[in-house]
Amino acid sequence: MDWINALVQGILLGGLYALFAAGLSLIFGVMRLVNIAHGDLIVLAAFLGLTVTTATGMHPLLALIVVVPLMAALGYALQRGLLNQTLGDDILPPLLVTFGLSVILQNGLLEIYSADPQKLNAGGLETASVPVAGLSLGVLPLLTFAIAVLVIWGLQWTFYHTPLGRSFRAVSDNQDIAQLMGINRRHVFGLAMALALGVTAIAGILLGIRTSFDPSIGGGRLIFGFEAVIIGGLGNLWGTLAGGVILGVAQTIGAKIDPGWQILAGHIVFLLILAVRPNGLFPRISA
Protein backbone atom coordinates (compact mmCIF):
# COMPACT_ATOMS: atom_id res chain seq x y z
CA MET A 1 0.00 0.00 0.00
CA ASP A 2 2.88 2.32 0.84
CA TRP A 3 4.27 1.81 -2.64
CA ILE A 4 0.97 2.48 -4.31
CA ASN A 5 0.67 5.58 -2.20
CA ALA A 6 4.13 6.72 -3.32
CA LEU A 7 3.17 6.03 -6.93
CA VAL A 8 -0.04 8.07 -6.70
CA GLN A 9 1.70 10.91 -4.88
CA GLY A 10 4.35 10.86 -7.61
CA ILE A 11 1.74 11.10 -10.35
CA LEU A 12 0.15 14.08 -8.64
CA LEU A 13 3.55 15.71 -8.10
CA GLY A 14 4.06 15.26 -11.82
CA GLY A 15 1.28 17.78 -12.38
CA LEU A 16 3.37 20.48 -10.73
CA TYR A 17 6.42 19.53 -12.80
CA ALA A 18 4.32 19.63 -15.95
CA LEU A 19 3.36 23.18 -15.01
CA PHE A 20 7.05 24.03 -14.57
CA ALA A 21 7.66 22.54 -17.99
CA ALA A 22 4.71 23.84 -20.00
CA GLY A 23 6.11 27.36 -20.32
CA LEU A 24 9.53 26.07 -21.38
CA SER A 25 7.95 23.77 -23.92
CA LEU A 26 5.75 26.54 -25.31
CA ILE A 27 8.49 29.08 -25.95
CA PHE A 28 10.80 26.45 -27.35
CA GLY A 29 8.04 25.36 -29.70
CA VAL A 30 7.30 28.85 -30.96
CA MET A 31 10.75 30.45 -31.11
CA ARG A 32 13.32 27.75 -30.30
CA LEU A 33 14.34 29.75 -27.22
CA VAL A 34 15.56 27.96 -24.11
CA ASN A 35 15.12 30.24 -21.17
CA ILE A 36 17.68 29.54 -18.42
CA ALA A 37 15.89 32.05 -16.17
CA HIS A 38 12.66 30.03 -16.32
CA GLY A 39 13.12 28.54 -12.85
CA ASP A 40 13.86 31.93 -11.35
CA LEU A 41 10.71 33.30 -12.97
CA ILE A 42 8.72 30.54 -11.25
CA VAL A 43 10.26 31.61 -7.95
CA LEU A 44 9.58 35.26 -8.78
CA ALA A 45 5.91 34.39 -9.26
CA ALA A 46 5.85 32.69 -5.86
CA PHE A 47 7.34 35.80 -4.24
CA LEU A 48 4.88 38.04 -6.06
CA GLY A 49 2.16 35.81 -4.64
CA LEU A 50 3.68 36.29 -1.20
CA THR A 51 3.62 40.06 -1.55
CA VAL A 52 0.06 40.10 -2.82
CA THR A 53 -1.26 37.77 -0.12
CA THR A 54 0.51 39.54 2.74
CA ALA A 55 -0.50 42.97 1.47
CA THR A 56 -4.16 42.18 0.88
CA GLY A 57 -4.81 39.09 3.00
CA MET A 58 -6.07 37.33 -0.13
CA HIS A 59 -6.03 33.57 -0.43
CA PRO A 60 -3.02 32.56 -2.57
CA LEU A 61 -5.22 30.95 -5.20
CA LEU A 62 -7.22 34.17 -5.46
CA ALA A 63 -3.92 36.05 -5.81
CA LEU A 64 -3.58 34.33 -9.18
CA ILE A 65 -5.86 36.97 -10.67
CA VAL A 66 -3.19 39.53 -9.87
CA VAL A 67 -0.02 37.50 -10.36
CA VAL A 68 -0.93 35.85 -13.67
CA PRO A 69 -1.54 39.13 -15.57
CA LEU A 70 1.48 40.67 -13.88
CA MET A 71 3.77 37.85 -14.99
CA ALA A 72 2.21 37.84 -18.46
CA ALA A 73 2.88 41.56 -18.82
CA LEU A 74 6.43 41.03 -17.61
CA GLY A 75 6.82 38.26 -20.17
CA TYR A 76 5.69 40.46 -23.01
CA ALA A 77 7.95 43.31 -21.94
CA LEU A 78 10.91 40.97 -21.43
CA GLN A 79 10.51 39.41 -24.84
CA ARG A 80 10.10 42.65 -26.75
CA GLY A 81 12.58 44.66 -24.73
CA LEU A 82 15.35 42.10 -24.42
CA LEU A 83 14.95 38.56 -25.66
CA ASN A 84 13.86 39.38 -29.23
CA GLN A 85 17.27 40.95 -29.71
CA THR A 86 18.98 37.64 -28.97
CA LEU A 87 17.13 35.48 -31.48
CA GLY A 88 18.99 34.27 -34.53
CA ASP A 89 21.12 31.40 -35.72
CA ASP A 90 23.69 31.74 -32.95
CA ILE A 91 22.69 29.93 -29.75
CA LEU A 92 25.08 31.87 -27.52
CA PRO A 93 23.20 35.18 -27.12
CA PRO A 94 19.88 33.76 -25.91
CA LEU A 95 21.61 31.31 -23.59
CA LEU A 96 23.96 33.80 -22.04
CA VAL A 97 21.41 36.61 -21.82
CA THR A 98 18.86 34.40 -20.06
CA PHE A 99 21.66 33.11 -17.85
CA GLY A 100 22.52 36.69 -16.89
CA LEU A 101 18.84 37.33 -16.31
CA SER A 102 18.71 34.31 -14.02
CA VAL A 103 21.53 35.67 -11.87
CA ILE A 104 19.93 39.13 -11.77
CA LEU A 105 16.54 37.74 -10.76
CA GLN A 106 17.96 35.45 -8.12
CA ASN A 107 20.02 38.17 -6.50
CA GLY A 108 17.29 40.75 -6.91
CA LEU A 109 14.94 38.48 -4.96
CA LEU A 110 17.65 37.92 -2.39
CA GLU A 111 18.02 41.68 -2.01
CA ILE A 112 14.28 42.27 -1.59
CA TYR A 113 13.08 39.18 0.26
CA SER A 114 16.31 37.89 1.94
CA ALA A 115 17.38 34.25 1.89
CA ASP A 116 14.79 33.18 4.47
CA PRO A 117 12.49 30.40 3.32
CA GLN A 118 8.92 31.61 2.77
CA LYS A 119 5.61 29.90 2.27
CA LEU A 120 2.23 30.88 0.94
CA ASN A 121 -0.47 30.30 3.52
CA ALA A 122 -3.43 28.56 1.96
CA GLY A 123 -5.11 27.68 5.28
CA GLY A 124 -7.06 24.42 5.39
CA LEU A 125 -6.31 23.60 1.75
CA GLU A 126 -2.76 22.61 2.65
CA THR A 127 -3.78 19.74 4.91
CA ALA A 128 -7.18 18.77 3.53
CA SER A 129 -7.39 15.29 2.10
CA VAL A 130 -9.94 12.93 0.65
CA PRO A 131 -9.95 9.14 1.04
CA VAL A 132 -9.81 7.37 -2.30
CA ALA A 133 -9.71 3.57 -2.46
CA GLY A 134 -7.97 3.28 0.88
CA LEU A 135 -5.47 6.05 0.11
CA SER A 136 -5.58 9.48 1.60
CA LEU A 137 -5.03 11.98 -1.19
CA GLY A 138 -4.22 15.61 -0.47
CA VAL A 139 -6.69 18.05 -1.95
CA LEU A 140 -3.89 20.39 -2.97
CA PRO A 141 -1.95 17.80 -5.02
CA LEU A 142 -5.22 16.72 -6.65
CA LEU A 143 -6.08 20.31 -7.42
CA THR A 144 -2.57 20.92 -8.77
CA PHE A 145 -2.85 17.94 -11.08
CA ALA A 146 -6.28 19.01 -12.27
CA ILE A 147 -4.98 22.52 -12.97
CA ALA A 148 -2.03 21.05 -14.87
CA VAL A 149 -4.34 19.00 -17.08
CA LEU A 150 -6.55 22.03 -17.60
CA VAL A 151 -3.62 24.32 -18.44
CA ILE A 152 -2.15 21.87 -20.93
CA TRP A 153 -5.53 21.28 -22.49
CA GLY A 154 -5.98 25.06 -22.69
CA LEU A 155 -2.58 25.56 -24.32
CA GLN A 156 -3.28 22.76 -26.75
CA TRP A 157 -6.63 24.31 -27.62
CA THR A 158 -5.05 27.74 -28.06
CA PHE A 159 -2.45 26.24 -30.37
CA TYR A 160 -4.85 24.36 -32.58
CA HIS A 161 -8.12 26.31 -32.49
CA THR A 162 -7.38 30.03 -32.33
CA PRO A 163 -5.91 32.60 -34.70
CA LEU A 164 -3.18 33.23 -32.11
CA GLY A 165 -2.25 29.55 -32.07
CA ARG A 166 -2.24 29.56 -35.85
CA SER A 167 0.21 32.45 -35.76
CA PHE A 168 2.36 30.59 -33.21
CA ARG A 169 2.60 27.57 -35.48
CA ALA A 170 3.14 29.63 -38.61
CA VAL A 171 5.97 31.60 -37.03
CA SER A 172 7.47 28.38 -35.72
CA ASP A 173 7.36 26.87 -39.23
CA ASN A 174 8.82 29.78 -41.16
CA GLN A 175 9.34 33.24 -39.74
CA ASP A 176 9.83 34.98 -43.09
CA ILE A 177 6.71 33.63 -44.71
CA ALA A 178 4.73 34.31 -41.54
CA GLN A 179 5.82 37.95 -41.79
CA LEU A 180 4.39 38.02 -45.32
CA MET A 181 1.01 37.15 -43.78
CA GLY A 182 1.13 40.41 -41.86
CA ILE A 183 2.29 38.68 -38.69
CA ASN A 184 4.75 40.74 -36.69
CA ARG A 185 6.88 37.98 -35.26
CA ARG A 186 8.26 40.20 -32.50
CA HIS A 187 4.74 40.77 -31.26
CA VAL A 188 3.85 37.09 -31.60
CA PHE A 189 6.98 36.10 -29.67
CA GLY A 190 5.99 38.62 -27.00
CA LEU A 191 2.55 37.02 -26.75
CA ALA A 192 4.08 33.54 -26.55
CA MET A 193 6.31 34.64 -23.68
CA ALA A 194 3.34 36.33 -21.99
CA LEU A 195 1.38 33.10 -22.20
CA ALA A 196 4.37 31.09 -20.96
CA LEU A 197 4.89 33.36 -17.96
CA GLY A 198 1.16 33.32 -17.24
CA VAL A 199 1.46 29.55 -16.85
CA THR A 200 4.68 30.08 -14.88
CA ALA A 201 2.71 32.27 -12.47
CA ILE A 202 0.28 29.43 -11.80
CA ALA A 203 3.21 27.06 -11.29
CA GLY A 204 4.90 29.48 -8.90
CA ILE A 205 1.83 30.01 -6.72
CA LEU A 206 1.12 26.27 -6.48
CA LEU A 207 4.78 25.65 -5.66
CA GLY A 208 4.63 28.28 -2.92
CA ILE A 209 1.54 26.71 -1.35
CA ARG A 210 3.01 23.23 -1.51
CA THR A 211 6.51 23.83 -0.12
CA SER A 212 8.68 26.56 1.28
CA PHE A 213 10.75 28.50 -1.22
CA ASP A 214 13.69 30.88 -1.24
CA PRO A 215 15.48 32.83 -3.99
CA SER A 216 18.05 30.09 -4.60
CA ILE A 217 15.74 27.31 -5.73
CA GLY A 218 15.09 28.52 -9.28
CA GLY A 219 17.80 26.39 -10.88
CA GLY A 220 16.31 23.22 -9.47
CA ARG A 221 12.82 24.10 -10.82
CA LEU A 222 14.30 24.82 -14.25
CA ILE A 223 15.94 21.39 -14.24
CA PHE A 224 12.72 19.59 -13.27
CA GLY A 225 10.81 21.38 -16.01
CA PHE A 226 13.57 20.66 -18.51
CA GLU A 227 13.63 16.98 -17.60
CA ALA A 228 9.86 16.73 -18.03
CA VAL A 229 10.12 18.35 -21.48
CA ILE A 230 12.91 16.04 -22.65
CA ILE A 231 11.34 12.88 -21.22
CA GLY A 232 8.03 13.71 -22.88
CA GLY A 233 9.59 14.65 -26.21
CA LEU A 234 10.11 18.12 -27.63
CA GLY A 235 7.09 20.00 -28.87
CA ASN A 236 4.49 17.67 -27.41
CA LEU A 237 2.52 19.27 -24.55
CA TRP A 238 0.71 16.08 -23.51
CA GLY A 239 4.09 14.37 -23.65
CA THR A 240 5.34 17.03 -21.27
CA LEU A 241 2.61 16.10 -18.81
CA ALA A 242 3.64 12.46 -19.12
CA GLY A 243 7.27 13.51 -18.61
CA GLY A 244 6.30 15.41 -15.46
CA VAL A 245 4.46 12.37 -14.14
CA ILE A 246 7.39 10.04 -14.82
CA LEU A 247 9.74 12.44 -13.08
CA GLY A 248 7.36 12.82 -10.13
CA VAL A 249 6.94 9.07 -9.73
CA ALA A 250 10.70 8.49 -9.97
CA GLN A 251 11.22 11.03 -7.19
CA THR A 252 8.59 9.71 -4.78
CA ILE A 253 9.66 6.10 -5.35
CA GLY A 254 13.28 7.15 -4.86
CA ALA A 255 12.37 8.93 -1.65
CA LYS A 256 10.56 5.82 -0.49
CA ILE A 257 13.77 3.81 -0.85
CA ASP A 258 15.92 6.43 0.87
CA PRO A 259 14.88 10.03 1.64
CA GLY A 260 18.26 11.26 0.37
CA TRP A 261 17.56 9.70 -3.02
CA GLN A 262 14.47 11.64 -3.97
CA ILE A 263 15.93 14.18 -6.39
CA LEU A 264 18.77 11.94 -7.49
CA ALA A 265 16.34 9.20 -8.51
CA GLY A 266 14.52 11.69 -10.75
CA HIS A 267 17.77 12.73 -12.44
CA ILE A 268 18.84 9.13 -12.93
CA VAL A 269 15.55 8.16 -14.56
CA PHE A 270 15.93 11.19 -16.81
CA LEU A 271 19.45 10.16 -17.83
CA LEU A 272 18.31 6.59 -18.42
CA ILE A 273 15.54 7.75 -20.72
CA LEU A 274 18.00 10.05 -22.47
CA ALA A 275 20.29 7.05 -23.00
CA VAL A 276 17.55 4.81 -24.36
CA ARG A 277 15.26 7.28 -26.13
CA PRO A 278 17.27 10.43 -26.89
CA ASN A 279 14.25 12.13 -28.45
CA GLY A 280 12.03 11.44 -25.47
CA LEU A 281 9.09 9.13 -25.27
CA PHE A 282 6.66 11.06 -27.49
CA PRO A 283 8.67 13.36 -29.77
CA ARG A 284 6.96 15.65 -32.24
CA ILE A 285 9.61 18.08 -33.44
CA SER A 286 13.37 17.78 -33.61
CA ALA A 287 15.52 20.37 -31.87
Binding site: P163, R166, S167, A170, D173
Partner: peptide
Protein backbone atom coordinates in the same frame (compact mmCIF):
# COMPACT_ATOMS: atom_id res chain seq x y z
CA UNK B 1 3.13 26.19 -43.40
CA UNK B 2 3.59 22.46 -42.83
CA UNK B 3 2.02 22.52 -39.34
CA UNK B 4 -1.15 24.12 -40.67
CA UNK B 5 -4.00 22.44 -42.49
CA UNK B 6 -5.07 23.63 -45.92
CA UNK B 7 -7.82 25.81 -44.51
CA UNK B 8 -5.57 27.18 -41.78
CA UNK B 9 -3.03 28.18 -44.41
CA UNK B 10 -5.78 30.14 -46.12
CA UNK B 11 -7.11 31.61 -42.91
CA UNK B 12 -3.69 32.84 -41.86
CA UNK B 13 -3.53 34.82 -45.08
Amino acid sequence: FPSLSVEENLLIG
